[in-house]
Computed example of a mutant assay.
Amino acid sequence: MSALFNFQSLLSVILLLVCTCAYLRTLFPSIIDRNKTGVLGTFWKLARIGERKSPWVGAACLIMACTVLFWT
């Protein structure tokens, strides 16, 4: 089953993308920052969400981890 058709898997993929983009921006800021528009601009936007909403993203990661471990 694809992650697009399962809501829990879709949320996991989005959270992983946000966390990965924010982490890669701390390591290689020039790569993420030069692509602010277009398709690659999505990664810049995900990195900005990960930086600015980091307490909320961290809480969402904890909740997702608990649901994956204990719910399924």
Rank of each mutant, 00 (worst) to 15 (best):
M1W: 09
M1Q: 08
A3E: 10
A3V: 08
A3G: 06
L4Y: 06
F5S: 12
Q8E: 15
Q8P: 00
S9H: 08
S12I: 10
I14W: 06
L15P: 02
L15A: 07
L15I: 06
L16S: 13
L17D: 04
L17P: 00
L17C: 11
V18M: 10
C19W: 02
C21I: 00
Y23D: 01
Y23M: 13
L24E: 08
L24T: 08
L24R: 07
R25F: 00
T26P: 00
T26E: 14
T26F: 11
L27H: 09
L27T: 06
P29K: 12
S30P: 00
I31C: 02
I31A: 06
D33W: 02
D33K: 14
D33C: 09
N35Q: 14
N35M: 08
K36T: 15
V39A: 13
V39K: 10
L40T: 04
G41T: 12
T42L: 14
T42I: 15
T42E: 01
F43G: 01
F43L: 15
K45L: 12
K45H: 09
K45V: 03
L46M: 15
L46E: 00
L46G: 02
A47G: 06
A47I: 04
R48L: 07
R48F: 01
I49H: 04
I49S: 03
I49Y: 04
R52K: 13
R52S: 03
R52D: 01
K53W: 10
K53M: 05
S54R: 14
S54C: 05
W56A: 14
W56E: 13
G58V: 01
A59L: 15
A59W: 03
A60R: 05
A60W: 02
A60Q: 08
A60C: 11
L62C: 12
I63G: 07
I63C: 09
I63S: 11
A65F: 12
C66D: 02
T67R: 11
T67K: 04
T67D: 07
L69P: 00
F70G: 03
W71K: 02
W71G: 02
W71C: 03
T72H: 13
